[in-house]
Amino acid sequence: MKPIAWHRVWAVVLRHLYNFYHSWDRIVDAFYWPSLDIIIWGLTISALTKQGQGAIIQISMVVSGIILWYVLWRGQYEITVNLLEELWSENLGNLFSSPLTLPEWTIALCALGFLKLILTIAFTALVAYFLYAVNIFHLGFALIPFIVGLLIMGWGFGLFIAGLFLRFGTNIQTLAWAGGFALMPFSATYYPLDSLPNWVQAVAHFLPSSYIFEGMRSVLLTGSFQTDMMIKSYLLNAVFLMLALAFFIRSFRLARINGLAHLK
């Protein structure tokens, strides 16, 4: 593999940071929706607890689940929406008639996911703390493998959806926002896995995220970190990321056959 030219990676990151600064849409996506989710779910669980139905579900679990969910979503979203930004602004031709390579572009999009994830987590963690006194950092060092695992899964899913965009263009652009949420019911984000229907559990066993959310609950409830769950999650993540990368690279080659500048 050829060496990465980091100045080109920075150029792509800078292009999207400029866009973030100028775009209310992107700012709302980064801060408003995650905060709204925390407020709505927090209030719902508070109400259930007051009615005596909240014994099983603790508010800290749901709120922590929301914050961690946005890790996965952010990783996926930055890859897919930033590809859409290039398609909307007809910039793909400018980018790939420059010396920028596909690995450099991909690294830049993943890096953006990481950078904005820090912003989103910091903001939502503050919202959760001030509204419900939930401190996500009570998860301690376990938070690091949880975040890394979910971010990798988000990147993998983002690359898969980006591969679809390279094949079908903006006709399916709604997947950039909605695609990630398709994984949510199967990820045991808010509820323990064994409380879900059997068929949902069957699907969940193939998703790296379900092991992470189960692991998070284990830390919150018992204080124990389930290493075996993390290993399963990371192994699945490795397989899915490789498959997603292969699909993305293949889609890019196909797009180049038809012409990158024609992609809309």
């Binding site: 292009r15 400029y18 866009n19 930004e85 290039e86 602004s89 007809e90 910039n91 031709g93 400018n94």
Partner: peptide
Amino acid sequence: ARLPWRLTVWE
């Protein structure tokens, strides 16, 4: 051809 429309010319 076009460039990203939300960015300034300088950017």
